[in-house]
């Protein structure tokens, strides 16, 4: 079937299998491999992207369901000149990543969370990341990064 999806501001139309998941569409059809697949049960959040600005798990959505919608992936976060998004920069400043595999999903989940909770407590950040698993960092520095972005109030939506 034909789907037309705007990804990181670029609209494309492609013929895809009806069973193609959004994450496979992004990775295989659009060539955006920053979005990772870490599980098969909607548990780990590695595949998190923004659908019309809200975090969703792209492994639990058909490409067909994204037809006509706007998707933002990790590749769409930095400025065109390569300047990292404030969340990305905070992850670096606070050593919020190690192997980096969960990181794109974490960054996207935090982008959505901070839009809904611009001034969160630490507990709210932790609850807000309940759907994203990381095996390297113990979450401490990820939480610090999210809080730092909120404190700085520099989130661009």
């Amino acid at each position: 079937m034909q789907v037309t999806v705007t990804v990181n501001g670029t609209t494309g139309s492609h013929d895809v299998e009806t069973r193609m998941l959004l994450v496979h569409y992004l990775r295989e059809v659009r060539g955006l491999t920053g979005t990772n697949v870490g599980c098969d049960t909607t548990s780990c959040g590695a595949c998190t992207v923004l659908l019309n600005g809200e975090s969703v798990k792209s492994c639990t959505m058909l490409a067909a369901q994204a037809d006509g919608e706007e998707i933002t992936t990790i590749e769409g976060m930095a400025a065109p000149d390569g300047t990292l998004h404030p969340i990305q920069e905070a992850f670096r400043e606070h050593h919020g990543l190690q192997c980096g595999f969960c990181t794109p999903g974490m960054v996207m989940a935090i982008a959505s969370f901070l839009k809904e909770h611009p001034d969160p407590t630490e507990a709210e950040v932790r609850e807000g990341l309940e759907g994203n698993l990381c095996r390297c960092t113990g979450y401490h520095n990820i939480v610090q990064a999210a809080l730092a972005v909120a404190r700085a109030g520099e989130l661009v939506s």
Binding site: L32, L97, G100
Partner: peptide
Amino acid sequence: MLRREDPALLSGEARY
């Protein structure tokens, strides 16, 4: 010192 590995991992550039 901040990690030199991070920009590639944070931007989705890294290749697994």
